[in-house]
Nucleic acid binder design. Structure first.
Lengths: 236, 236
DNA sequence: CGACTGATTGACTGCCCTCAAATAGGGTGG
DNA sequence: CCACCCTATTTGAGGGCAGTCAATCAGTCG
């Protein structure tokens, strides 16, 4: 990572370096190796020793795991600038809690556990920022748990689309497009692809979405906010 | 908290002070105020500014929240020695993500946000240990999410009882007793009290539990491990 | 133009929720 | 010690949401 510097990120969300000076950031970046992962590859495997911390550089990924019954569960999506595999920071060696899977061809910054731990010792701000991120994750989890317990399949699906629109949606004339398959949104909302298809078909008839293979166009994201009943949500 | 020292804890789980020297621990403890909460009182309220970090001293509590539909969801239980309200450590002011409710009359150590943040600056080990705890929480969450998505009401209830037996169970001749109401276990397993009652009645007929009002006696906890199908669980 | 993967649709099933009403503990005060 | 009350718990009947299974349809890419 020699010569790479923080400015190259443009608008990306570098929450993990919050409060650090550019020279410090460059120092930390210089300790990482850049690695390439093809679409579909698993970057961290649930249960493996957490011996690397990584930061998404380009591409797209998500956390996921499989239930004992073989259903796939998709959790949060990971965008450039976001760190994952932060279990590696823990003082006691631990394991990765979920899979992290590249969804597009991706490049990722990789720090070895010992390396990133000594950097964290030198810059405790990294620990603070990790806690900040953990709080965000817990917040997401409370929202998701609430949805699982008290919302219908349709509401959960609307909530997922609304969230995806915000995080990986692309503004197009006519709405916001998210390129995901039915199976992906189904696994994110924890419903079956059959149910997902039925609901999406209904929404298409109602003209709130337009579908293609592997693509969904939300004609008006606000509608999904209503459909998800997020107005009654405590903390979005 | 003058004069209170770490040894008074006996066997309690003081993971948060891991790696700190007794004099350092005493220093940190000395900065806290001891506060009393009656059974049933809410110690942190979801959405309130996270301006205090606390440690359970005596008694019992749990995290919980209410869904927009008014269902109560009980998350983890909190035992003496465990910290909660750790959102207060975040560098950016944030809010509590869930309620924390005393289940028994309790005493709690309370640090003001500014106080505990300056202590954390002096002893970054506290930040490391907080991350360690966060990893445990995420692990719990993955397990719970898996249960919600792929297990039946009966399996989830067995899993809850097994977990409660480990954390707040009391060894008695004849089994392990946990003193919780049907409603509490129902809210922990995310089922209705009606379903909980039916399943518990069935188990009583099968002689794997014995029930009293507000008490459940597990005659053999291992049976619940099987019933919860935890053997197929990835990370317990 | 085939072949593969993604998506659709219908028919059926079942788990668990809802609602209503009855029953039982366990503490309290007379 | 017993009657009483409040709360926890039980039990039945019925219904609905979303899952399962099976078969078909449609897009894309070689």
């Amino acid at each position: 990572m020699g010569g790479m510097n923080a400015l190259k990120f443009g608008t990306a969300n570098l929450e993990w370096f919050l409060g650090l000076e550019p020279p410090e950031i460059d120092l930390i970046l210089a300790a990482a190796k850049l690695r390439r992962f093809p679409a579909g590859s698993v970057m961290t495997l649930q249960g493996d020793p957490a011996d690397r911390l990584m930061m998404m550089w380009t591409g797209r990924a998500h956390y996921s795991f499989e239930t004992p019954n073989g259903e796939k569960v998709i959790l949060m999506w990971i965008r450039p600038g976001e760190v994952f595999g932060a279990s590696a920071l823990a003082s006691r060696p631990s394991t990765y809690l979920t899979n992290t899977q590249a969804v597009r061809d991706s490049t990722v910054l990789v720090w070895e556990r010992s390396e990133i731990r000594s950097l964290a010792k030198r810059f405790p701000q990294l620990l603070e920022n990790t806690i900040l991120i953990a709080v965000d994750y817990f917040s997401w989890y409370v929202t998701t748990h609430t949805a699982l317990v008290s919302k219908t399949a349709e509401e959960r699906l609307a909530q997922v689309l609304f969230g995806l629109a915000k995080s990986i949606g692309q503004k197009l004339s006519g709405g916001i497009e998210i390129d995901v398959t039915n199976e992906e949104v189904a696994n994110s909302a924890n419903i079956t692809p059959y149910t997902a298809s039925r609901i999406l078909s209904k929404w298409q008839h109602q003209n709130v979405i337009r579908k293609g293979r592997g693509k969904i166009l939300l004609r008006s994201p606000e509608r999904f906010f209503l459909r998800a009943d997020l107005s009654r949500q405590v903390s979005p």
